[in-house]
């Protein structure tokens, strides 16, 4: 059963369909639908103050938008902040690691770099959780890594995030160990720095790669703005 009892066609999901005499198998058969009056009211046009159309030619279609608004919720700006802070923190952590490599004074900055790694770990994992929560089908989040697709900044971002979060975790766990584990931690530290810088900036490309005029017009500066924002946030 794709949807609950529909023997009363009036009470169906809007297909006006009686499942005693047929089965739903069309292209949109899987589409789940519930009647939501609020949603309807939101899309319903407001009454006119005066009747348009007959006075002068209108360059628009009843003032209706030509484009669809983004369907994203508050999860996305939250992720921009968390992911950006994590990315910039990981970059700084890697910067400290590089500047103080083989230097005993590293200990002085150990607290700062540990804090960087923790911000990186928390930001990238919590950010990823917000992203997954925003999906229409959160259980399918892993499909983001079904393909490697440079034409889609969101796909690139998924790969960057999938690199940054584990690298941050490995760095946080092993960076101050000795021996092989320490070496792994140091390598992960550099990797997390590179992933972090990409994580801080790819969101700028992501919003620039849309048809929304205000984002597209500012596209050249979007990554720069996003990275500056992350640099300020740390």
């Amino acid at each position: 059963m794709r949807y609950p009892q529909t023997s009363d066609p009036v009470a169906t999901d809007g297909r006006d369909f009686d499942d005693r005499i047929g089965e739903v198998s069309g292209e949109a058969a899987e589409q789940r639908a519930t009647h939501a009056d609020e949603r309807l009211q939101a899309v319903a046009p407001q009454p006119w103050a005066q009747v348009p159309g007959v006075a002068e030619p209108s360059p628009t279609y009843y003032g209706r938008p030509m484009l669809k608004p983004p369907v994203w919720s508050a999860d996305i700006p939250l992720y921009y902040f968390l992911g950006g802070a994590a990315g910039a923190a990981l970059a700084l952590g890697a910067g400290i690691q590089y500047a103080f490599r083989g230097d005993g004074r590293m200990r002085e900055l150990r607290r700062l770099s540990a804090r960087c790694h923790w911000i990186g770990i928390i930001g990238s994992t919590a950010g990823a959780a917000f992203l997954i929560h925003d999906l229409g089908r959160p259980s399918r989040f892993v499909y983001m890594m079904r393909v490697f697709r440079p034409s889609s900044p969101m796909n690139m971002g998924s790969w960057i995030l999938a690199g940054a979060a584990p690298a941050a975790i490995v760095t946080g766990l092993f960076i101050n160990r000795r021996g092989v584990l320490g070496a792994i931690g140091e390598a992960a530290g550099y990797a997390s720095g590179v992933f972090g810088a990409a994580l801080a900036g790819y969101t700028g490309v992501l919003v620039a790669n849309t048809v929304l005029p205000i984002w597209q017009d500012a596209r050249r500066w979007m990554p720069v703005l996003f990275i500056l924002k992350t640099a300020v946030s740390r």
Partner: peptide, 29 residues
């Protein structure tokens, strides 16, 4: 429909405003 995870990126990438995500379904159609 068996692959779409409802990220909503196509919605802001259609220059014609055609494709949309159905909120109670979660996927783009």
């Amino acid at each position: 429909p068996d692959i779409c995870n409802g990220c909503g990126y196509c919605v802001v990438n259609c220059p014609f405003g055609v494709i949309d995500r159905r909120e109670d379904d979660g996927r783009a159609w």
